[in-house]
Nucleic acid binder design. Structure first.
Length: 390
DNA sequence: TCTGGGGTCCTAGGACCC
DNA sequence: TCTGGGGTCCTAGGACCC
């Protein structure tokens, strides 16, 4: 029997901003948009904040304070749409460097008490508490200690769910937000989990939940009661079987403390849609910059890529991807640019583009190329051709 | 008032090889 | 004239997550 915790920082980006601007506490505020919205200091020493009313552009909300959520705005919502609902809400520019700093702080604080931590992005982790809880007075006591340590280290609150697996813990952490601690056992599933909407399960998104609803299934309990054979007919063997297991709270996935990235990418949405031919110059400049950023990312993280791809989002929001595999691994900006250019030529180029992205896939660690790697790859690394590597 | 940026995994068809 | 079975790699799209 395992004890797995899911820890979720409460309104993370917005809460980090409130540490900087405590005068905003209690006011609806959202994080999103670009750097140009930074609050300006006035002559009397107070800060003048931009509100959603003042915003013009294509940004979305990354995080909303609970006060802003009460007005109906939520992450992922376009800022222009949010302005219609909460025009007086303060708009703060996203400062990812600062969020990453706080992310490292809270993760380090947790690791002091329980070292088996799995990263789930900037503001979430899974923790395997099975060993640590025995030595530290049980799961609930350890959960409380983790919350205190996170608060000491960051000044921020988090919500924790502790159950026998990841799937249930992810659900449980949301049950008492913000600043909550929920411990569930398998016996609690019917009373605590089955009444929840099926959409709350990690892995049931908008499409699947709409299809379930059309089939008369709204709650996790209704999903649990559905015939597994029938689910497999409706959703395919793999996903259908998973839906059945998930609804019954079954999940054996381990907590994984380290993972190698499979791809790195850079993309940007233009302020106005660009036409591949009419705006060739502007598009080419952006394209080159994305390739240079991607090359720098590969270099900084110590990876080489063997496949390069582009992503195009047209003005009608349709997405097309094109990719090519290289003869040898690379992290050279010019080579990436050439390859991405060839990919771009494959895509339909009649419509205006809203977004352009470049992706590096098929990664390998720069220090892990086999000794017999082709000369071109070794030349990239400035390694002598005769020296063998491990 | 149109909807960011960075990822993962799965599926499916075609090429190519034995 | 008609027609195997398996395996891997590559490409493209789509659902989903934070």
């Amino acid at each position: 029997m395992r004890w797995i915790a899911h820890l979720d920082m409460d309104a993370f980006y917005a809460s980090v901003e409130l540490l900087r601007y405590p005068e905003l506490r209690g006011r609806p505020a959202v994080v999103g948009g670009a750097q140009r919205n930074a609050p300006e200091l006035q002559a009397d020493g107070t800060r003048r904040f931009m509100t959603l009313r003042d915003y013009k552009g294509r940004g979305v909300i990354t995080t909303a304070t609970y006060e802003a959520r009460a007005l109906g705005v939520h992450s992922g919502m376009g800022l222009m749409k949010a302005a219609a609902l909460a025009s007086d809400a303060v708009l703060l520019p996203a400062d990812f460097q600062e969020y990453r700093r706080f992310s490292r702080l809270f993760k380090a604080a947790v690791a002091e008490l329980a070292p088996l931590v799995e990263d789930r992005g900037i503001d979430e982790i899974f923790i395997d508490l099975t060993q640590a809880a025995e030595a530290q007075g049980g799961v609930r006591a350890l959960g409380e200690r983790i919350k205190s340590r996170v608060r000491e280290a960051t000044g921020l609150t988090c919500s924790i769910g502790i159950t026998p697996n990841k799937l249930l813990s992810k659900l449980a952490s949301e049950l008492a937000k913000p600043d909550g601690l929920t411990v569930l056992t398998l016996e609690d599933i019917p009373a605590q989990i089955w009444p929840l909407p099926a959409r709350r399960i990690n892995g049931i998104g908008p499409k699947a939940s709409a299809r379930l609803e059309a089939l008369g299934i709204r709650t996790i309990g209704e999903l649990a009661a559905a015939d597994p054979q029938w689910l497999m007919e409706q959703f395919g063997a793999h996903y259908g079987a998973w839906l059945h297991d998930a609804a019954h709270g079954r999940d054996e996935r381990p907590v994984v403390t380290h993972r190698e990235p499979k791809s790195l990418s850079r993309e940007t949405t233009f302020e106005r849609d660009l036409h591949p031919r009419e705006d060739r110059e502007a598009l080419g400049a952006v394209f080159t910059r994305l390739c240079e950023q991607l090359a720098a990312d590969l270099e900084r993280n110590g990876y080489l890529a063997k496949s390069i791809g582009v992503k195009l989002r047209y003005d009608d929001f349709r997405i097309v991807t094109r990719a090519l595999t290289l003869p040898a691994h690379t992290r050279d900006a010019q080579e990436i640019r050439r390859c991405a250019g060839r990919c771009l030529k494959k895509g339909p180029l009649e419509r205006r583009l809203r977004l352009l992205g470049v992706r590096a896939g098929n990664l390998c660690r720069a220090d892990a190329l086999p000794a017999g790697a082709p000369a071109a790859e070794r030349a990239q690394l400035d390694l002598p051709l005769c020296e063998g590597s491990k």
